[in-house]
Structure formats: structure tokens, C-alpha cells
Nucleic acid binder design. Structure first.
Length: 406
DNA sequence: AGTGCCGGGAA
DNA sequence: TTCCCGGCACT
């Protein structure tokens, strides 16, 4: 869900950035996955159990319309559309084969839509696509390699109820935006230099595993569904309870889970997102519950990308003469709180919150361009509008107050 | 609605 | 450069 209020009038990419979530055509039963990134749009349509088609289209988002395979080529000269038609096998395909087709489609989609530098076969889109397609393969085992070595955080769980277009957790898009907006080649870099592990966030657990499958299974079996009575929670809730941790090649940059700095680690019960001693098992996120959706979508993944992104609010940059509050040195109690938490430090008011990459993008949209509203009294408040002549010059000119600095 | 202040225009 | 203000962001 993109809050329209703070998205800004225009995208820094110069184009309307949209991201539609996978939807299911009720008439045809198709699963349609559409991505639109900065003028590129890709649509993946998985024909349920009949076949799989991937549509990819480059062109302006505004003028593009998805070309179906059997339609004539796009009349738009700037649009290049291509499609990959996976041979149909309508006769009793196992779910495994369906998933493999979706996997292939997602791989093709990823290779087409991502920048040439992103050539890893295990793209975050895979996860999104797979899960959007209705089949999460993580339990089958062969996904674990891709998950274990991909750099982005595990994709938020996309439930069947997430077919609503309101919440597109398209991490592929977000990653692209992330790179574009932050001018940061980090994800690409991390791909080569980071090992990924997954840590259980269950209070007083902190188990670290190297694969999503493993950590999910651990959570599901150990914490959530002891005995596996609920099939449902095994599909949805374990994502809440693990986080991705990046182990950099430089060993000193990654502290073990139970090191002395564990107070800042998500495994600490006191600082974990589900810090209450007995965290109520979060109900499966539903589109009708924004807070739940935000939490569920952001908590698992943002924890993983947390280390890279959480201090990038440029408006938090201290004045030249002041100290630097680094992300790593932030108050631990503020770092791992899922709900928005305000930290006040030496007059600086800033928020540290676990957010998804998309949310971070939104924050970066608004944050750098406008300084945070100061809490100090301003000339207007002190002197009142009737004594405007006593205001500082900046206040008189409706500029940032120079007299009562924050 | 009130406030802070960015961006931009006029002098 | 100085001064002013429209309008957005935020509370």
C-alpha cells in the first residue's frame, strides 16, 4: 500500500512508479503478476494449472498496456514486449511442476527486468513470484540454496488474501528503487560479499540457521505449531519470528548472535519486535488491517536490511557542530521496535522503525527534502504574529528559524 | 487550523 | 542580494 499523501507529487525517477500486486483474475483463474518500475512494466501471468505465460514489456508505464501473447505486437514503437510461453501440460501436473514453471517464469522475469548487473539466478522476485503464485516452495527444500545466499531480506509472506492490489510487496521493485534512489550499489555488492543467516526472533531463542527453510521449520516446529496442529500458521506466521542477518566477509563487521552487543541484536528478548514475554501470535495479515499488514510485511524483511538502511534519513544528519548518531550506536531499545518509536537524543528527534524497503523508499522520498520540524519555539510562537518585527530575519522571510535553532 | 520552511519570484 | 510569499509537509 502506498500512502498517497506522502508519496510526493512526482517520482524522482521522472515517472509514475507503480507496483501492482499479483492478482487473480476471477474469470479466468489466471494469476497475474505485474511489475512496473520506472517505465518498465513486466507482467507475469501464470495460468493456474494450464500453462504459464510471462509477459514482459518495456516502455512507459503510462502508455503501456500488457500485450497478450496472441495479440499483435505492440503498436507503440518504444515498447518492446516479449513473452515466453511455457508449454502447456494440462494433464495432471503435480504442484511441483507448477512451481517449477513458475520458478522458470520468475527467473526469466527477473533476468529481464533487473539490471544486467543482477544476474544471480536467485532473485528476490523469485520468492515474491513463487509466493504470489500460490505456492511457497520453501518447505520442499530446493529453495534453500537460493534463499540462503540471496542478499535481500526474505520476502514478506504473501498470503492468499494478499491478492488484493493494495499491498504490493514487490521487493524486486523496491530493490531497484532502493538502488536508484540511494545511489547505492550495495545490494549488488552484498551479493558477493555477504553471507546470510537467519536468526530466530522468538524470545529467548535466538537460534541462527543458514537457510530460510531451516529457520522457518525451526520456528514452525519449535515455537508455532508444536505438533503441527495448525497448518495455517506454518504457512504464514513463522516469517514474523526470524530475521535475516548478513555476515560480511570481514569478520569483524559481524558480531555473533550472542556476543556482548547482543542488546542490539534482534535475538534479545527485551528488544525484539515481539518483546512481550509471550508475544501473541500475530494473526495472518489481512489487507483490511493496515497496521498488521505493515508489521507483517516489514518486520521480517526489514530486520535483515535494517543494518544498511536505518540511518539514511538525511534530515537526521546532525548540524555540523553536533555529534553523529550512528545507526549502530543508536539506543538499542529504539532499534528493534516494530511499531514506530520516537527516539529523542540531544534535541534530535528521529524515528527508528523497522520498515520495509518500500517504506524506506517512501521515507526517503519525503525525508531528505525537508528538514524535520523542530520542537524549539520559533519566533512566531515566542513573539507572536503581532510582533513580527521582532522575529529573526529567517522567520520573517518564512525561512528556517535562525534564532531558535533545533 | 496552525506552524515551519522550501522553493521561487520580485525588487 | 534582500525581501516576500505560495504552497507543501507536518502536527
Amino acid at each position: 500500500m502506498i500512502p498517497k499523501a506522502r508519496l510526493g507529487k512526482r517520482s524522482p525517477l521522472g515517472a509514475l512508479v507503480t507496483s501492482t500486486s499479483p492478482g487473480i483474475n476471477l474469470e479466468t483463474g489466471e494469476t497475474v503478476v505485474t511489475m512496473a518500475v520506472a517505465g518498465q512494466q513486466a507482467t507475469s501471468r501464470a495460468d493456474g494449472h494450464l500453462g504459464l505465460k510471462v509477459y514482459f514489456q518495456c516502455g512507459r508505464a503510462g502508455e503501456s498496456s500488457v500485450d497478450h501473447l496472441d495479440s499483435s505486437p505492440s503498436p507503440c514503437g518504444r515498447s518492446v514486449s516479449s513473452s515466453i510461453d511455457v508449454p502447456k501440460r494440462s494433464d495432471q501436473r503435480s504442484p511441483h511442476e507448477v512451481d517449477m514453471n513458475e520458478l522458470m517464469a520468475a527467473m526469466v522475469l527477473s533476468s529481464l527486468s533487473c539490471s544486467p548487473l543482477l544476474h544471480s539466478p536467485a532473485q528476490p522476485d523469485l520468492t515474491a513470484s513463487m509466493e504470489c503464485g500460490g505456492g511457497e516452495l520453501s518447505d520442499s527444500g530446493y529453495w534453500s540454496v537460493g534463499h540462503a545466499h540471496r542478499s535481500p531480506a526474505p520476502s514478506p509472506p504473501i498470503k492468499e488474501s494478499d491478492a488484493s492490489p493494495a499491498t504490493p510487496p514487490d521487493e524486486g521493485v523496491d530493490m531497484e528503487l532502493d538502488q536508484v534512489l540511494f545511489d547505492e550499489p550495495a545490494p549488488r555488492k552484498r551479493r558477493n560479499s555477504v553471507k546470510v543467516a537467519y536468526r530466530c526472533l522468538w524470545p529467548s531463542c535466538g537460534k541462527v540457521l543458514t537457510s530460510v527453510v531451516g529457520i522457518k521449520r525451526h520456528i514452525r516446529t519449535t515455537h508455532l505449531c508444536r505438533g503441527g496442529e495448525h497448518e495455517r500458521c506454518s504457512r504464514s506466521e513463522e516469517d514474523f519470528y526470524y530475521t535475516e542477518i548478513n555476515q560480511w566477509e570481514h569478520p569483524q563487521q559481524w558480531s555473533p548472535p550472542h556476543s556482548g552487543h547482543s542488546s542490539s541484536s534482534p535475538a534479545s528478548p527485551a528488544s525484539s519486535p515481539s518483546s512481550p514475554p509471550s508475544p501473541p501470535p500475530p494473526s495472518p495479515p489481512s489487507p483490511s488491517s493496515p497496521s498488521c499488514a505493515t508489521l507483517s510485511c516489514s518486520a521480517p524483511s526489514s530486520s535483515g536490511s535494517f543494518w544498511q538502511v536505518q540511518s539514511e534519513h538525511s534530515y537526521q544528519a546532525p548540524p555540523p557542530s553536533q555529534h553523529v548518531v550512528s545507526a549502530a550506536a543508536a539506543t538499542p531499545s529504539c532499534r528493534w521496535t516494530a511499531p514506530p518509536t520516537a527516539c529523542h537524543k540531544q534535541g534530535l528527534s528521529f524515528r527508528v522503525r523497522s520498515v520495509s524497503v518500500g517504506e524506506q523508499w517512501l521515507q526517503h522520498q519525503s525525508a531528505p527534502s525537508r528538514r524535520i520540524r523542530g520542537e524549539a519555539k520559533k519566533c512566531r510562537k515566542v513573539y507572536g504574529i503581532e510582533h513580527r518585527d521582532q522575529w529573526c530575519t529567517a522567520c520573517r522571510w518564512k525561512k528556517a528559524c535562525q534564532r531558535f535553532l533545533d
